[in-house]
Design a protein around this nucleic acid. Structure first.
Length: 415
DNA sequence: AAGCCGTGGCC
DNA sequence: TGGCCAAGGCT
């Protein structure tokens, strides 16, 4: 990692070198930082609740997708105590469509724990944060750095990419994680002796100094900004494909760029694709109502609402799936809708045949199921898969149309 | 420790 | 169009 820049280390314009990277990053960040709803403006106090909420939502989820959800959650639950008082079902309904629903369960559990065990204030150390549900190594470091200016480096996918290029880490992920983390931490600059990294009392909760002025030279008290600089850099410049190296503040210092193969980083070991699973979904209408049930609390789509379905198995044929239709007193005639609903989960693709039936007005819901007015489906914790299934089953009929097209119109999450 | 866990956008 | 990617955590 020693580089030729040594010769100009002490000149007034240093180009590269380990010690200079944090300053270059902060200078770039002070000019190019994104304005995000959960991000404090320079000089503004940081709200750990907002940092936490955004970090949970942003786990494996894009900034664009999170935006409207974050605003809705914040408007409804302005602080941890308010969220702790909410019901899990209310949170699941607000979360519907965001995916990875265990995050919503942990969100609620975390709020309850912060209120009960920490008096409604988030702990300000990485270790204590790590003990909270839904907060792993990354999120603990992110909150500690961004909300409390702890000198620690959260390493997300963006930073893995930036760092793997900067140092040309040839070893593939995930094996390279420890090395990348070590290298990433060097971007915080040299540590001070006798401190754990928490900055002076007056600076703890503000970005870039009390006066709101950005000081790129103030490396030691801006760990959170260095981390966010790397994330913004990864999102805007050091992108997975076609990175804009000419605009990068670290380009003169980038090992991959020097080799010309920056797009090949980070290296990754390929993972095996999941096998296609098939099944059937049953859309039963009783007048203007449909039959639904709640999925088991944990596991796939845990705690979410669904229409009854067969098991989802590899190589399951339609006949086998149809035999698992819900038992209704009036023994309806099932009609198979043309086509099918396909959905891709992280670990397997799914193809669901959709059967519809109409039953008499006072038909009872089978054990564990219930009738819901179609007009009120938006109040349910309906994952997008089930929105697709219901839209397919009901076709272009009336109210459901709004349900099916809600997302396309970018109206955001259900109210 | 590797598999489980959603969804939408992009090229 | 399909594979990749996105501010990962849990078991």
């Amino acid at each position: 990692m020693a580089r030729a820049a040594t010769a100009i280390r002490h000149t007034h314009k240093m180009q590269g070198g380990d010690r200079n990277r944090p300053v270059l990053l902060l200078e770039w960040y002070d000019r190019n930082r994104r304005l995000l709803p959960w991000r404090a403006l320079p000089g503004e106090p940081v709200d750990p609740y907002r940092v936490w909420l955004s970090e949970i939502m942003l786990q494996q989820t894009t900034v664009k997708t999170v935006g409207p959800y974050f605003e809705k959650f914040l408007a409804r639950w302005p602080d941890v105590a308010a969220m702790a008082r909410a019901s899990l079902d209310d949170i699941l309904r607000m979360w519907a469509g965001l995916g990875y629903y265990s995050r919503a369960r942990n969100l609620h559990a975390c709020a309850v724990k912060v209120l009960r065990d920490h008096g409604g204030r988030f702990p300000d150390t990485e270790e204590d944060l790590r003990a909270l549900p839904g907060i792993g190594p990354y999120t603990a470091a992110a909150i500690a750095a961004i909300a409390f200016n702890r000198r620690t480096m959260p390493v997300d996918g963006n930073i893995e990419r930036v760092v793997s290029r900067l140092f040309a880490v040839d070893e593939p992920l995930p094996k390279a994680k420890p090395r990348i983390h070590t290298l990433a931490a060097t971007l915080l600059g040299p540590s001070r002796s006798g401190r754990d990294g928490k900055s002076r009392a007056g600076d703890v909760k503000t970005r870039a100094g009390r006066d709101g002025k950005s000081r790129a030279s103030d490396v030691k008290t801006r760990a959170g900004d260095i981390a966010q600089a790397l994330m913004d850099l990864g999102a805007a410049i050091c992108t997975p494909k076609k990175p804009s190296c000419v605009l990068c503040p670290l380009s003169d210092d980038c090992a991959a760029r020097a080799r010309g193969d920056q797009e090949t980083f980070p290296r990754k070991t390929p993972k095996k694709a999941g096998e296609l699973r098939r099944g059937a979904a049953f859309v039963v209408r009783r007048g203007s109502e449909v039959l639904v049930r709640t999925r088991p609390a944990k596991g796939l789509l845990g705690g979410m609402t669904e229409v009854p379905t067969s098991t989802w198995l590899a190589a399951q044929d339609d006949t086998a799936a149809l035999k698992q239709a819900p038992c209704l007193e009036s023994a309806p005639r099932w009609r198979r809708k043309a086509g099918a609903v396909t959905h891709v989960f992280t670990h397997f693709p799914l193809e669901l045949a959709v059967y519809t039936a109409a039953v008499a007005r006072r038909t009872a819901a089978p054990e564990g199921m219930r009738w819901v007015p179609i007009a009120r489906l938006n109040d349910e914790a309906l994952p997008n898969l089930m929105r697709k299934v219901i839209a397919h089953g009901l076709g272009d009929e009336m109210e459901i149309h709004a349900l099916a097209t809600r997302r396309k119109q970018q109206e955001g999450p259900p109210a």
